[in-house]
Amino acid sequence: MGQTVKTLARSRRSEEITAYLFLLPVTVLWFVWFLIPTAYSMFISLYKYSFVAVSQNHFVGLDNYIRALTDPAFYKALRNTLFLTFVAVPAQSLIAFVLAMALNLKIKFRDIFRTIYYVPYVVSTIAVTTVFMYLFVKGSPLNKFLSLLGFDNVTWYVDFKLALPFITIVYVWQQIGFYIVIFLSGLQTVPNELYESSEVDGANPFQKTIYITVPMLKPVIFMVLAYGMIHALQIFDQVAAVAQNQPLGSPAGATSTLVSFFYVQSFKNWEMGYGSAIAVIIFLIIFIFTMIQKKLMGSEE
C-alpha cells in the first residue's frame, strides 16, 4: 500500500518535471524576447518618454494613462475597434466553419478547392486592398449593384460611414483562410465512429453537425473565437494598407483603431511613453474580454 502511494507520488513528480522541461525552451525564449521588452515598455508608460530624445525623459506617474482616457480620439479608436471585432469575429468564424465542413467532404478537386480557399490569407495585403479599392470605388459595377440595395454609390474608403465597414470586409475576407485551416485540422479529430453510429440512428447531416461536430470541436471553437477576438482587437495591417500615403486612420480618423492610434503616438509622434500607456490599456481591454469569453464558454476540458 505504502509502496503504491510512493510510486504514485513519484510518477506525479516525474510528470511535473517532464511538464516543466517541455515548457522550458519556450519559457526561456519568452522570458528574454517577450517579458523583458514588455516589462520595459510598461515601465516607460509611466514616463514622458522618447527613445530619441533621452535627455528629456522624466517620470510622470499615471499622466499618460489619464491623457489616453480623456482623449476623444482614443474613444473613437475604441468604438471603431469594437465595431470591427463584433462584426468580424462571428462572421469569419461562421463562414470559415461552413467552408471547412464543405472542404472536408469527399469531393472532386478537394486539394485544389482547399488551396484556393487559402489564397486570400496568403496574398499580400497590398494586392488585396488594391483590388478591394477598385471594387468599392465610386461607379464600380459592385457599387452600382449595391446602390440598388440602398447603399450610396460612393467610394467606400473615403466615406466616413462606410470606411470602417470597408476595412471590416477586407479583414474578414483575409482572415477566413486562417480559420478554415484550423477548423479543417480540428475536424480530423472527430472520430468517424460517432458519425457512423449516428447514421444508424438516422440523423441528417444538419443534426450530425449540431450534435456531434460542434460539441467535439468545442476546444477548437473556443480557440477560434478567443484568438479571433484577440487578433481583431489588434487590427492594424489593413488599416495601414488602406491609408496608403495618408495618415493612419484616414479619412480623418474614421478607420482609426486601437493599435493604429497607439502606433501613431509611438512611431509617428515619437511619444513612446504615451504610446506604451495606450498599449497597456489595449492589453487590459483584450484581457478582460478574453476572460469574460473564457467564463462564458465554460471549461472546455
Binding site: 473615403v158 495618415p247 484616414s250 479619412p251 480623418a252
Partner: peptide
C-alpha cells in the same frame, strides 16, 4: 517643429471638410 503632428492634424481637418 512637431512636423508629423502638424501634417496629421492638417490633413484630418481637410479630409473632414471635403469628404463629409
Amino acid at each position: 517643429k512637431e512636423g508629423q503632428k502638424f501634417t496629421e492634424a492638417l490633413i484630418k481637418e481637410f479630409d473632414e471638410a471635403i469628404y463629409t
